[in-house]
Design a protein around this nucleic acid. Structure first.
Lengths: 239, 239
DNA sequence: CGTACGTTTGAGTAGCTTCAATTGGGGTGG
DNA sequence: CCACCCCAATTGAAGCTACTCAAACGTACG
């Protein structure tokens, strides 16, 4: 179960930034090739198998951030009642660990939902970049700002009184990619419902033909109706 | 209803940082007095009366952050059903507007719950500070990180199934200062409940002598029991 | 083929919401 | 100073939603 670490050194002189996790933060329009430090060239990666932890609750914070190259990860906390509360589902391109920068121990755990490839980005490296490139501080701020905005959206979803409403919003938000790698229980823990209720809501929409579910693939032929449900239109669960 | 703007220029040479909203970010251990730019000396303030908006939903983002000097502010969004969802209650010392850095229009509104004094901090000024003082980038990151962590906590509270549980957690979290400037409706919108339910929960605890409510002052003689309720111990509403 | 686990579905119940009536407190005008 | 009004808070009763408990089904894996 040990994570394999791989050191990747790019030899591509044409575009040294290709594949660099920091490329989203780099703001030098024309970075002088000679001045590019190791930062952009060295990439440490971790491969996670489905179910493996990237880090656990109470782990010591190691001052490292992570960027997901491929796969999906869930961020969770332990609920008061023993169950787990999913904070966020993170997909390809997402940063992991932004909430731990000021803390000594993780208050959230991160588990791979599928096999994952994750790039390790030492926080010091990010700070170093922010130091060298003033404009990237702005980009970094925007990234954190966006994270905050997403959490606010999630909180809004949790306050939607109706269960179908929450499930509909979840589907609309997550079904750009037409696949849901997480279990019903995970969805339930994310939406503040039970897996039974989630299942009932999905079945209700499926019965109406608004949702089709091949074992991993999901589609929304009735996207318009689902949007109405998400907006508050009531929906009888049993037909 | 027009907000009064006041320009305050400090003449105090002894401690130029005193009262500076950026002091929490400044990381120069011994800032050379001669090099201190206007940044630390100019402070624009806004005075808000209870009920006045600092900004509204859909307002254009003016690239300004705010720091609350005194008073309380609520951050809210419009719910699907017409009601408003409170995102966060912000008190003295808190930063306002961190979630809007990457957006063109506000997706949240900010209203004063009490009379407020708010310092205006142009985002450019923050960036300029981050540029000059590399270490303050870390502090800024920690601040945003802390904000994210608080939102995650809030989301966890919203998933607590029981109503009394949510109210108890809210009281424990908010009653360091022994006063709740917001209305029952606001609390309800924050917790994802109705004002009736909030009222009932508070009454239940008051009947048991765990909570006392002078018109503005709140106290928790039964903090221990309230903590148990927050942790999941069931509680009959009617006695 | 059999076991184990996740999902679906079924009744019954608890708890929150809804709607409405009552109380209380703060402000205004007499 | 008191009466009045207005809005917020409280409280009551009824209804409905989502949870609980439980069983049956499907699928993946040995």
């Amino acid at each position: 179960m040990a994570s394999k670490l791989k050191l990747v050194v790019s030899n591509d002189r044409v575009s040294p930034c290709y594949g660099c996790p920091l490329s989203g933060l780099c703001r030098d329009d024309a970075p002088p090739a000679a001045a590019v430090p190791h930062t952009c060239l060295e990439q440490r990666c971790v491969h996670l198998h489905s179910g493996e932890h990237l880090f656990r609750v109470s782990d010591e914070v190691d001052q490292q951030l992570h960027v997901i190259r491929s796969g999906d990860i869930k961020l969770y906390q332990h609920g008061r009642d023993g169950g787990q509360h999913i904070i966020e589902f993170l997909g390809s391109g997402a940063w992991v660990g932004l909430e731990s920068l000021n803390q000594q121990h993780r208050h959230a755990g991160a588990v791979a939902l599928t096999d994952c490839e994750v790039t390790i980005v030492p926080y010091a490296q990010v700070l170093s970049l922010l130091d060298r490139q003033p404009r990237s501080a702005e980009a970094f701020g925007q990234m954190l700002s966006g994270t905050i905005a997403r959490h606010q959206q999630h909180a809004a979803m949790l306050r939607s009184t109706s269960a179908v409403q929450r499930v509909a919003q979840f589907l609309l938000q997550r079904l750009e990619q037409a696949s849901l790698p997480m279990s019903r229980q995970d969805i339930a823990d994310y939406l503040g419902l039970t897996s039974s209720t989630v299942s009932r809501c999905l079945s209700a929409m499926r019965r109406r033909g608004w949702l089709t579910m091949g074992q991993r693939a999901y589609h929304l032929p009735g996207r318009l109706q689902v949007e109405k449900v998400a907006a508050g239109t009531p929906l009888m669960l049993e037909d």
